[in-house]
Each structure stands twice: as C-alpha cells, then as structure tokens.
Design a protein around this nucleic acid. Structure first.
Lengths: 225, 225
DNA sequence: ACCTGAACACCGTTCAAGT
DNA sequence: ACCTGAACACCGTTCAAGT
C-alpha cells in the first residue's frame, strides 16, 4: 500500500515511509514501551519495513533523536516577557523542567548534544528569555551565561537522576538495605533519618530549589559589581 | 600459569583470575581506552580469559561497575570536621566534584544507582558530613536532605554534561553552526554573545556556583523558620 | 571449584543488488 | 528513487560440558 499522494511525474520505486512517519512511530514506541526500547531495528519492525530503509530518511540514530527532540521542544510554553526579571527566570526554568520531566529521555539526549547546539529556534527562544531577564536584572554577559549554564546543569541532573533511579533494577532492595546496615555511632545523622530518606527524596522540590539557586547566583553577581 | 599462592587442600580446577584482578584490568582499560570501551567481552579478551569466566567473579556488568566505583569512592578526601558549617558544605562538595570530575564515568554510573544506595561507607561519610554541617547551621532534617539532594543533582549534571559534550561526535561543527545562523532581531542577547559562548561555557565555575547554591538554599531555610 | 565455547537474543550500520 | 536482505562488527548473558 503506497502513500495516498504518490508523487506524480517521478521515476523509481515508490516510498513506503517518510521522515514524518518515522518520527510518529518513534514517539508511539517510546510512549508505549519506554525510551530504552527505541532501537532502529525495533522501530522498523514496528513499522513493517526493513531496518535499513530508515537510513534513507535519517542520517543515523542520533539524528533521529535530535529530530524527535526538536519537535518536542516546541511544546515548552513561551516564557512571559513581562514582570520582575527574577520571577521570569524562575518561571522559565520551571517551564523547561516540567516539559523535560514529562519526557525524561529528552534530558538523556540533551546531555550529549546540549540545549543550544542540539535544538532549534524554539529552544533558543527560552535561552534568550533567560539571558534577557538576567541582563535586565543587571548581570554582565558572563554572569548571564553562567546563570544559564549552572541552572541547566542542575535541571538536567535532577531529571536524569530521578528518571533513572525510578526504574532501576533492584533499586528497592538496595534502598531497604542501606538504612538497615548503618552504623549509628559513626553516621548519626544518616541513622536518624533512616527510613525517612526515600520519602524525603521523593518530594518535588524543584521550584523552591531553582528559586534558591537563582537568588544565590544573582546575589553573588551583585556582590561582585 | 596458576596464581602464585594456589589454595592448598582444595579440589577442582585452579582459578585463572580473581575479582581483584578483574577490577585492576577494568581500571586499566578505562584509563587507556575510555569508559565506553569497557565491555565484558573486551575486558576478558584483554585479560586473556573467556568472557563467561567473568561471571564467576562478578554478578553482572552493573555489579562490576559498582565494585569499581566503591574502590574509587575511597579517594574522596575526608571532609574537614572543623570550621564554619557553610564553608564545610562548600568544601565537601568541591571535593566530591573534583574526584568525580577526574573519573567522569563514575557520575554516569551514579545517576542510575545513587550516591547512597550505590556506594559504601566511604561515600556515606561524605553525606554525613554535609548533613551534620547543615544541621549545625540550623537546618531541619528535611532541609538538610533537600540541600544534599539538590546539590547532588547540580553536581552530577555538571559532570555529565561536561563529560559528554566534550567528546561528542560532530560537536564542533554544530557549535560553529549555531552562532552563524542566529537571527539577531529575534534573539539579540544570543546574537550579541555569538562566538563568545563556547569560551564562556568552557570556564570552570563550579566552586562559585555551589557557594551560590548553598547560600541560596540556606537563606531560604532561614526565611522559613 | 573453576573455566570454557557455543548459543541466544539482541545492537547500529554499510552496501550491493533488486524494483 | 527508493527499498531490501545479507553481512559486519559488535553487545550482555546463560548453560551444558569439560578439567
């Protein structure tokens, strides 16, 4: 079954798929089976085509991931242009965090490709908004870039650690073990926390934490000037 | 050639290797060829033994990584017990960061296993010291745990992003491309920074940034009480 | 008690041949 | 033009058989 609107006036074998088809199928596979199940072979099998056919539509697997990511980056809500600079920075990061948190594999890809180099215009708008707010608050160019970078590190770390430690094989057993074997004399604080640790770690403290980080970085910048 | 001190009074085929041998060979392989080259098969080949032999000495690859990591965690210098709590927290994190930064694959493993659940006593000592300093500063148990977790996210993110974007295939070409194609009207701040970005991003600002983060988190805790 | 090759169930990617 | 199977060069892991 060839695509509905086959290109007229062209020679050769008709296409069985397209880049758009591939991206849709990849998204469905990730949503259904999880990010780690996305392989070139499995994706092709799911689509009912040969694995090697994919290489006529995307350069390689990393390219596929980047295409997928760029589509997704458009969903980050546009940051507010008005209001107190500090609040705009915090709101911008919370928006980025919430969007990436819903698709944690995105953070996985972005550690290797970078928010700027890997993504297209819609992501750059987010960066621009944060840089503009920082400048408006009085930051130098260096300080604004540092603010962005440092909070990017924090955000990507938060998402990765949470995403990975959630599904890790044997995580539960090890979690139970580590509080039982603690030496209360040598490690009194940890022993006192004991089995409260998992519960405390499960809390979402990202919004408070970015605010604290932004405050700390802005205060440091002010102290320098 | 059997090991020098073959166990006397035991039956069966003499061992050709040991857990200790395996860990030494794994470290050598990582140091020489890089973290991503460490595979069970390659490690066995390097040692001149069958790949399946490794499974008599370690449970699986993840177990091997965790054993390797625990050996390494001992190298983090003991945190100072005296001095201003805030300074002890910063110094503790800088020590953790410097140690992990020298072996970035460690951060890779730790995102899936966690600093607490994956590591042994020598890592827990670091956690204890940070929790104790936070408590001494007046933090509640929740606040101390949040401080630890949040700065862990930041630290692991910093190390991962830096380690991965360094060796990424095609990173240079993309970096050159992204500043050239920027729309100066729509993204004035980014356009103004332009080709300064790579240079600014290469700077090591971790110590300043942890200090800012610690200050921000402690100030937030104070504001709540 | 310990080691081993064969085997299983996978990967990403290239390339000559086919339609 | 586009698709394909065969092939290459790998993975981690299990298990029956060997010493």
């Amino acid at each position: 079954m060839p695509p509905t609107d086959a290109p007229r006036g062209r020679t050769g074998r008709p296409p069985v798929t397209s880049r758009a088809d591939i991206l849709v199928a990849a998204r469905r596979l990730i949503d259904r089976d999880g990010w780690e199940k996305l392989t070139v072979r499995r994706l092709a099998a799911e689509m009912g085509i040969g694995a090697t056919t994919l290489y006529h539509h995307v350069r390689d697997k990393e390219d596929l991931l980047l295409l997928l990511l760029n589509e997704y980056a458009d969903r980050i809500p546009r940051p507010p242009a008005a209001g107190e600079p500090r609040e705009r920075i915090v709101a911008g990061w919370v928006a980025i965090h919430d969007t990436l948190g819903a698709w944690p594999w995105a953070a996985e890809v972005l550690t290797v490709d970078g928010f700027l180099t890997g993504l297209g215009d819609s992501a750059l708008v987010q960066v621009e908004a944060i840089l503009a707010a920082a400048a408006e608050h009085g930051c130098s160019q260096e300080e604004a870039v540092d603010l962005f970078r440092n909070i990017w590190y924090f955000t990507v770390g938060e998402i990765l650690v949470r995403a990975r430690s959630g599904g890790a094989r044997g995580a539960d057993e090890r979690r139970d073990g580590f509080l039982a074997g603690i030496d209360a004399a040598a490690l009194p604080r940890l022993a006192a926390i004991g089995d409260r640790w998992p519960g405390l770690s499960a809390r979402d403290t990202y919004p408070d934490a970015v605010r604290a980080f932004v405050d700390g970085l802005l205060a440091q910048a002010e102290g320098r000037s």
